[in-house]
Design a protein around this nucleic acid. Structure first.
Lengths: 316, 316
DNA sequence: TGGCCATAATCAGTTGATCTTATTATGAGC
DNA sequence: GCTCATAATAAGATCAACTGATTATGGCCA
């Protein structure tokens, strides 16, 4: 009956510093590197993790041959919580450093992009600012732009190709992510062997679609929509099922997708970007934009590329 | 541009201990008392809060006349986050101390009770145990019982009167909350002045309704449904609008509701309980039940009454 | 008005968990 | 078998946070 926690305030021994060490180590860059980012010695990190494992009474890292070989099952289980706690703490603290956001904001998000972490960031922002009323509108990226004025959207997040050029120069844009676009299929196949290219793509207006058609055009090939859907899941499943050749960003690839590149003769595709557009100049809009652009570089797998590396030097 | 946080890992100076001190102090029991619960001196608590206020760069407690006079606006704003972080930490850590829950559980919750914190507890449990598939069924309390066998519910939460007596002795029951039921109206009125009582109540089967009708019966009065709805919001609004006399538990009272008691001649109503029934004997069912009963006594406003007081002695 | 009690703030000295430095251990690569 | 890189261990140092004593403040009551 009473194997419950000794205090409703939790295990007092765990500290946020322990979690920071663990999260950094989980990124797989080693104790030395983690120490640098924490402004601690390698030894301190070693001891910190050791202590955490002691408290949790389980091993978190698989370490063999003097290197970290990845997380243990327990580590895998603990990581999301640890990250979440750190993010929440960080946000709660920095939220107090600025006046409370209030008012009503209309936010547009693409319904055809993997934006789960963005959604959670948005809802966290609402939690941290009880007087801020956030209304989220979901639509295809192509439709969002036109809705900015008509629906009075304050902040819009959309996907686009390469460097986004705003059609209205009052808008302020923030690039959130940048990743390559790939041709993908269930199995490798040569570009030349196809007379017409059966495409598994999003509906008209989607920038992946435009990019793909433009690339085919340039190569003098014709493509047709073998499977068209606005849903990521459907598209991925259709590619896996071999219904045609898909056009997907790196983060949306499934394990059983084969990337078709130069080797197979496929033309190169442009980079795609997730961009945030600040359409109105309210105080709250600016703050929300700042909040979201900060939120997206931790927690997501993009932290590796664009987050930590620079920070140690920048924060110095 | 760069008023952003110095590190993606948040402000390193804040510790969980700071948050614990603040949360305890926010309960309004004073520095001495908070110190006792934290096994620290009064002085340590004072300094801890001072440090936190220093870091956040704002006052959290309104202290005048040598006493805590409540939270400041900033304190109010910070409290939910602080609690949330502590709860998540506590749960994350204790989740590691026991084997991962897995399998599939069917949970029944009342759709006519304020169970927001219960819902969040359920979803947190799902987050902590990725291999546990939780399916939630929402229905009237009266219907849930009958569904236990027919729908194969593993765990059921429902409201009932006084002490719940399970109809099946294989069930294990956990009382979660207990609170008084009140007659309420938009304005005071005398019981005797009413020939028939216009009731604002939940549909047939609701235990509040049963309790109210039984009490009226005993007093030799007749009641009729002046406004019937299964929604809490509707019921509360109808009472506020003066459509009749409502029957609501303490936690559901609105600010503009007047409680009608002895003074007005209204008969006493029984206590109501929120009970959790463990219907199956799977390992995961038991663990989920434990998890939820722990979750509900911190974070909710019930912590004052049933949480902290006992704990200090129990934890010793 | 003044003594009394309870509470919180301040101060100064102490402590101990965590850090650093130095060293050892282990394995990969050439 | 050498070197290089990384992690673990050991031992002494450090500093944030704790304790205990003292002071400040204000309510309460005769």
């Amino acid at each position: 009956m009473f194997d419950c926690k000794p205090s409703p305030l939790g295990d007092r021994r765990v500290t946020l510093e322990h979690l920071r060490a663990f999260v950094l180590l989980a990124e797989g860059k080693g104790f030395q590197q983690a120490g640098l980012q924490l402004y601690r010695s390698q030894s301190a990190v070693t001891q910190s993790l050791k202590r955490l494992e002691e408290i949790l009474d389980c091993k978190l890292l698989e370490r063999r041959q003097g290197h970290i070989m990845g997380l243990t099952a327990d580590g895998e289980r603990f990581l999301p919580s640890a990250k979440e706690i750190l993010i929440r703490t960080s946000e709660a603290v920095s939220a107090m450093k600025q006046p409370e956001m209030s008012g009503r904001l209309l936010v547009g998000v693409p319904d055809d992009f993997k934006v789960v972490d963005l959604h959670s960031a948005i809802s966290r922002c609402a939690e941290l600012n009880r007087n801020l009323r956030l209304e989220v509108v979901s639509a295809l990226s192509s439709e969002l732009i036109s809705q900015i004025d008509s629906s009075g959207l304050d902040l819009v997040i959309l996907k686009c190709l390469e460097h986004f050029v705003p059609s209205d120069n009052r808008w302020k844009t923030h690039p959130l992510r940048r990743e390559p676009l790939y041709w993908v299929a269930a199995q490798r196949c040569a570009f030349d062997s196809l007379s017409e290219v059966p495409l598994v793509i999003f509906p008209d207006g989607c920038c992946y679609r435009n990019a793909a058609l433009a690339a085919l055009d340039k190569a003098g090939k014709h493509g047709y929509g073998a499977y068209v859907s606005a849903s990521y899941e459907n598209i991925r499943a259709a590619v896996s099922a071999g219904l045609g050749i898909g056009v997907l960003p790196e983060s949306a690839l499934a394990k059983d997708h084969a990337v078709l590149g130069e080797k197979e003769g496929f033309p190169e595709l442009p980079m795609v970007e997730l961009v945030m557009i600040q359409a109105t100049h309210k105080y709250a809009t600016r703050k929300l934009a700042e909040f979201l652009s900060h939120s997206t570089d931790i927690g997501s797998r993009y932290s590796n590329e664009c987050g930590f590396g620079d920070v140690s030097s920048e924060a110095l």
